[in-house]
Amino acid sequence: MLKFVKSHMESIDGIATYPMISLLIFFVFFSLLFWWVFTASKEHIKEVSELPLEETNQKNEQL
């Protein structure tokens, strides 16, 4: 089975570009995420982190 897959993959022209494209997408995504984490405003992060607590408080107030 593995021999069939290997021979089939080798027959595809340009197959070596797919791992490089995947690595590039991975690197760009995590670079942008890293940049966003360090440039996001502290007020926004605090507001978003308190959202689950606000929902719990609203439910308790309704009871």
Results as ranks from 00 to 15, higher is better:
residue 12 I to D: 08
residue 45 I to S: 01
residue 14 G to N: 11
residue 11 S to A: 15
residue 33 L to D: 02
residue 37 V to W: 03
residue 6 K to W: 12
residue 56 T to G: 01
residue 33 L to C: 04
residue 13 D to Q: 15
residue 37 V to L: 10
residue 60 N to Y: 07
residue 52 P to N: 00
residue 30 F to G: 01
residue 40 A to D: 03
residue 4 F to W: 11
residue 35 W to K: 00
residue 7 S to F: 11
residue 43 E to M: 08
residue 2 L to G: 14
residue 27 F to N: 00
residue 52 P to F: 03
residue 16 A to W: 13
residue 22 S to R: 01
residue 63 L to N: 11
residue 7 S to G: 12
residue 15 I to P: 03
residue 32 L to Y: 08
residue 59 K to D: 03
residue 37 V to K: 06
residue 14 G to D: 06
residue 32 L to M: 10
residue 53 L to D: 03
residue 9 M to S: 13
residue 5 V to W: 07
residue 3 K to L: 09
residue 9 M to A: 15
residue 23 L to S: 14
residue 46 K to P: 05
residue 49 S to D: 14
residue 25 I to N: 00
residue 48 V to R: 10
residue 10 E to C: 02
residue 41 S to N: 06
residue 14 G to F: 06
residue 14 G to E: 11
residue 9 M to E: 14
residue 57 N to Y: 04
residue 57 N to T: 05
residue 11 S to K: 14
residue 45 I to T: 11
residue 54 E to T: 04
residue 3 K to Y: 09
residue 40 A to R: 12
residue 27 F to L: 13
residue 2 L to C: 03
residue 57 N to M: 12
residue 35 W to M: 10
residue 37 V to A: 02
residue 48 V to Y: 06
residue 2 L to Y: 10
residue 28 V to A: 08
residue 35 W to N: 09
residue 22 S to H: 06
residue 15 I to Y: 13
residue 10 E to I: 03
residue 48 V to A: 09
residue 20 M to R: 14
residue 45 I to M: 14
residue 51 L to Y: 13
residue 53 L to A: 04
residue 12 I to G: 11
residue 7 S to Y: 07
